[in-house]
């Protein structure tokens, strides 16, 4: 196996793992709590921009950066995205289920707008370059560099996975499950049920922020274009494919869907003439869109095999996440 291939494999996996983090965050919100977030891209962007601001060296003509260590940037990213999630959740969680969806969609639009227009902070349409990359000293050796990066992401995903699994088995996780699976339990808890949902939503948002930061530092630059609604859609596809409610599924789904995405992008690049590639890329979105709808219709529990407890929960979700819509 050539070194280039290994380096590319490491690059691909690192990228996929950043999506896996987003997916784990979404799983806390949707899979565990039944809260629908249509603004994933917004929370990821908040994380990316906050971390970039905190860690880049002081730049002329732009607010910041503060030149802090990368770890500080990642923590700040998680805190900022978690805070925004908390605020938007506090606003909508007590209202109808889909008001949260609409509000998070609004967050994504607003964040996108800020990224484009607050040039003094975000660098406008061109974004922020030279986001410090971990192990920059290894950059001369592509293989060591990509493997080191991959190692960091593997550690982050693993730590997150273990922490989330532990959290779900904790009393907190059990209450969350009770709220989700049993509407009467949720009603009996009343105000504190809202508080538990809100906590879960904020934690999920924080994890998405962390994912945004990790991705920003891995790629090395950020721009508003990276955080279009398409990103939200991809993460949803990943979680649905993996099977919502299942942390391992969330990680596998991220890798699988990212693989399909990267593969079909490669196929389009080789099949279509350069002038037609933008058009062909939209066809790629059409196919994924149809795929997502088909999964919702045919395999609402995900493509990958699931842990038994998960499929049971999906059945119950029908009664807890919202009123069932019945056919006349």
């Amino acid at each position: 196996m050539s070194i280039e291939l290994v380096a590319y494999g490491a690059f691909f996996l690192t990228m996929a793992l950043t999506y896996a983090i987003m997916c784990l965050g979404l799983n806390v919100q949707w899979g565990q709590t039944g809260l629908f977030n249509v603004g994933i891209a917004g929370f990821v962007a908040i994380g990316a921009y906050v971390s970039a601001l905190l860690t880049t060296p002081d730049a002329a003509g732009r607010f910041g950066g503060f030149g802090l260590p990368i770890v500080a940037g990642w923590l700040g990213a998680a805190l900022a995205a978690g805070l925004v999630a908390f605020l938007i959740g506090a606003l909508t969680i007590r209202l109808r289920a889909d008001y949260l969806a609409i509000a998070t969609f609004g967050v994504a639009v607003a964040v996108q707008l800020c990224a484009l227009n607050l040039e003094l902070v975000t660098g406008g349409p061109f974004g922020i370059g030279f986001v410090p990359r971990p192990f920059a000293s290894l950059a001369g050796d592509p293989l060591a560099f990509s493997l080191a990066n991959l190692g960091v992401l593997v550690l982050v995903v693993l730590a997150l996975y273990l922490a989330l699994e532990r959290l779900l088995r904790s009393p907190w996780g059990r209450v969350l499950r009770a709220i989700r699976e049993d509407e009467t339990a949720a009603l009996a808890l009343g105000k504190s049920a809202t508080r538990f949902r809100l906590q879960a939503f904020a934690i999920g948002g924080a994890i998405m922020g962390l994912a945004g930061a990790a991705q920003a530092h891995f790629i090395g630059f950020i721009a508003p274009d990276n955080y279009m609604p398409m990103l939200t859609f991809q993460v949803w596809a990943m979680l649905i494919v993996g099977g919502s409610g299942n942390n391992r599924g969330a990680i596998l789904g991220a890798i699988l869907v990212w693989g399909i995405w990267a593969g079909s992008a490669g196929a389009i690049a080789s099949l279509f003439p350069p002038g037609e590639q933008a058009r062909a890329a939209s066809l790629q979105i059409v196919m994924i869109g149809v795929g997502l709808c088909a999964i919702l219709l045919l395999r609402p529990r995900g493509i990958l095999g699931e842990v038994k407890t998960v499929s049971r929960h999906i059945g119950r979700l029908a009664r807890s996440a919202g009123k069932p819509v019945s056919e006349p």
Binding site: I285, G289, C293, L296, K323, P324
Partner: peptide
């Protein structure tokens, strides 16, 4: 299929992108 509201919302999101 007696899907929940939120599945319908998600499906509409997929339909929109398509």
């Amino acid at each position: 299929q007696r899907s929940t509201v939120i599945i319908l919302v998600m499906a509409s999101f997929g339909a929109a992108l398509t």
